[in-house]
């Protein structure tokens, strides 16, 4: 093991630069530990996001040696080949400062893809009885553990090329709700994801699937949306 890590961190906004630091290497050290070491011991002005440190909140994603990763659960030993780390902000999102990105567009696209649950019952109705072994519920459960970290969005080539594309996370959320039998918003949702920024823009490169820290499969979810929107269009339920 190298006793010192050579760490390059992105500093500044969109027109910033990488700055190199030397950070002590330790056992079971995460990338977030490295960033925190720099902020606490070398550069207190360094800006970055984190909250839970245990892979639940989805706020600490950064670009680590060229790939988007959740830094709190990414061990240095697995990604720092030759003792080198290059850590930057997530791609495909505007940089606010250093390692923090403006994620508003990411969440706005969730809204555009109708990623909000549309209830069909009120609080005075009985709680819906949902069998966990139905195909629809299995499809909904497959992606329910998304933590909104933005890694799939940063990894997506189509997002990079097409600024209107909703991205894997928003479409996966839409597929979860399409599959949720309690939801009543599928008319508007299928219409939203059938447009030019929706599921049919996906090229199935599967970077989202490869890099999702929760091992979800957004490509499969988007394929499900493609099938459902095609069926809805052919039945005249949505328009192009």
């Amino acid at each position: 093991m190298h006793s010192e890590l050579s760490v390059s961190l992105w500093l500044g906004g969109e027109d910033g630069r990488y700055e190199s630091y030397s950070v002590p290497q330790r056992e079971s050290q995460t990338v977030l530990d490295v960033v925190t070491f720099v902020q606490r011991n070398i550069d207190p002005t360094l800006s970055y996001r984190f909250a839970c440190r245990v892979g639940v909140c989805g706020s600490c994603a950064m670009t680590v040696n060229g790939k988007p990763r959740w830094t709190c659960r990414t061990h240095v030993a697995k990604v720092a080949h030759g003792g080198r780390l290059e850590i930057g902000p997530l791609e495909n999102l505007p940089v606010i400062k250093d390692l923090t990105t403006d994620m508003r567009v990411f969440f706005e696209k969730w809204q555009e893809a109708k990623g909000v649950f549309a209830p069909t019952k009120t609080r005075r109705d009985a709680i819906a009885q949902i069998r966990p072994d139905t195909p629809a519920r299995i499809a909904a459960d497959a992606s329910i553990e998304c933590i909104n970290c933005g890694i799939c969005y940063a990894a997506c080539d189509t997002v990079r090329w097409n600024g209107d594309y909703f991205g894997p996370a928003a479409l996966t959320r839409a597929w979860t709700l399409v599959s949720d039998e309690r939801d009543g918003g599928n008319g508007a949702r299928l219409q939203a994801v059938a447009g030019s920024g929706g599921c049919h823009a996906c090229h199935s490169h599967q970077s989202c699937q490869e890099l999702c820290p929760q091992s979800l499969n957004p490509t499969a979810a988007i394929a499900g949306l493609k099938r459902r929107t095609v069926a809805a269009y052919l039945k005249g339920e949505i328009t192009a």
């Binding site: 059938a194 447009g195 030019s196 929706g198 049919h200 823009a201 493609k226 929107t229 095609v230 269009y233 052919l234 949505i238 192009a240």
Partner: peptide, 8 residues
């Protein structure tokens, strides 16, 4: 690409 172009 929208759903109509996708189908075509």
């Amino acid at each position: 690409m929208n759903v109509r172009l996708y189908i075509w």
